[in-house]
Design a binder for these strands. Sequence first.
DNA 1: GTTAGCACTCCCAGCACGCGAGTGCTACCG
DNA 2: CGGTAGCACTCGCGTGCTGGGAGTGCTAAC
Lengths: 354, 354
Amino acid sequence: MQKLDLSSDLDSRARDVLREVIIQHISTGEPISSRSLAKCGRFGLSSASLRNVMADLEDLGYLAQPHTSAGRIPTDRGYRFFIEHLMTSRALTRREREAIDDEVRHANEIDDVLHHASSLLSKLSDQVGIVFMPTLLQFTVRSMDFVQIAESKIMCILVGMNGVVVNKIIGTRQPFSRDELEKIGRYISVEFSGMTLDAIRRQLVRMTEEERALHDQMLQKTIALGIEAVNDVAPVEHELYVEGTSSILMKPDFADAAALRRTMLALQEKEKLIDILESCLDEDGLQILIGSETDFTQVHNFSLVARRYGSSQAPLGMVGIIGPMRMEYARIAPLVDYLSRVLSRKIEEGELQQ
Amino acid sequence: MQKLDLSSDLDSRARDVLREVIIQHISTGEPISSRSLAKCGRFGLSSASLRNVMADLEDLGYLAQPHTSAGRIPTDRGYRFFIEHLMTSRALTRREREAIDDEVRHANEIDDVLHHASSLLSKLSDQVGIVFMPTLLQFTVRSMDFVQIAESKIMCILVGMNGVVVNKIIGTRQPFSRDELEKIGRYISVEFSGMTLDAIRRQLVRMTEEERALHDQMLQKTIALGIEAVNDVAPVEHELYVEGTSSILMKPDFADAAALRRTMLALQEKEKLIDILESCLDEDGLQILIGSETDFTQVHNFSLVARRYGSSQAPLGMVGIIGPMRMEYARIAPLVDYLSRVLSRKIEEGELQQ
DNA sequence: GTTAGCACTCCCAGCACGCGAGTGCTACCG
DNA sequence: CGGTAGCACTCGCGTGCTGGGAGTGCTAAC
């Protein structure tokens, strides 16, 4: 089909033209004509010559015309080439960097951090900010504490190895003394430290069948409470923050009602978004999915710029932005990159609460 | 201007016509013509006669024409009259009632309940569900507990008189023994039970100035931790859940892009929504605000159906739906009413966690 | 290889036209 | 005197047509 090494397809003039077309199109949103390229002065060529170059670029699949007698717009492939070979990322401004630092520094609860991160990202990029945290299935326990908070309610506090804190309330029938609760907490913390919630549950269930448990009343209580504690925590819902959908409403790319509608619906279809983000979790660096690469079925002219966050051994989730293909990648890529790094550092330092 | 006692304006025929116009318009979304009224068979009158009645209703401000030679649509005032005098609320179906009961029964954390409530409401009504919980300024404390969860992190668990549980993580410099933490918790729970967070804070600050505190090291620690615990909890952000905006996207009422845009923006402007909902907090029963009554500046054709929830002495917030003026009030009003009651009962029973 | 010129294509805004729906009014009927 | 039939009038909307403008592709000349 096409040559694999895209970088060799194009001579330097063609690259310059492609770059200029994309830059102009990103800033105006309009199809770019040969004339407007000639006028920009960067080439010293007439519009007729540029037309030839553009026709070549179209043949190679980097540009397309919405209709005959319209200018050219970049294709998915054009953007892809631009991002990989032509773009020079803009450094963050001090204000951007400080905004991110501040936002992340001041939050304690992980929910808060993620929520703020997505809305900050949305504000800085003027696109839709998304932050995704998958289920805690691989959550490994460092310690567990139990606190009586009402007559028949006990709060269980789970601290994970990664510093994430989860708590839940358990209803109980039998009474527990303060002392018992402390003992149970200590016992579980010691015995099950480093295990996943699922493993703990299975272990506890197995223990109920052992002979000793039948006689040791304290152990019975421990098991009962322990099972309650880990039940229903593990398959906690995926958390997905989608912030700033209004910013996208204003973009001229969504002039007509149908497109607007489709877009809003797509952004609210969380399952699909989660699918996409989950499939990105394996990759390491900054990821940019363009147009059809995103697997958005209803809406095809969207791009995703995202990066994994969390400690390097135990990635937590994805953070990024979604916007029309026509976006300022040069500005947005470093933004997402930086935020994800700051976020990861914060999480490695630990002690974030859920 | 207009007579205050609206119910006396209209004879029984006019009422019937108004009711029919509104019912038809709610179900079709189209302006209603005299002919379609005549055809419905409920009147035994010709379209000409109905035209006369409709002209009267228009003069009185209950109906309006989008333009000459179009049928009539109800005005805000028309809907208002309909709701107060003409509508017969439809009883909930068993499925609806069960869905609500289930949803509320199964949740433990108040965040969850509210979140699910709004999305459930949205699903059942096919409108936008909203749930609002104002700041916890009037949150009165029943007990406080402190648990060490990491080297320099302590979790504080606040249980409110209304059973709501709030927790936060505090970073500490000085170390606390398990025993100390327990003592501090007990002390604060006893001394400050029944006070608001704000009152507790002020009291603690006052105590630092007392002579005794300067010498009693334990008291110093208690005060330090207590202040940390209540700080920044009180002015916790207003919680506002807005769920199901996509359902509204599909309604034919928002055919054109501009209206769609305005609507989405309005629904995302949380401050405005909070204002509106806050102003409803004083009222007791089900509240219906129609069109211009809602104070929505950008969008004027919206209605709000909402009701307060929480215990009768200490109302917690508002729950309801937002949709186009043209909505099935007869079905939605009982829905909101019932959900708010179930929610309130759940909260009165207590032990909800935040 | 570059460029000027020209024919061709297509979009789009504006306009006129006719149709259909719905009203208001008036005259007539029981 | 309330109800009704009939008719003229108004308005919105869809349709088809047209002219202008923008942009391209191609060709021939430099």
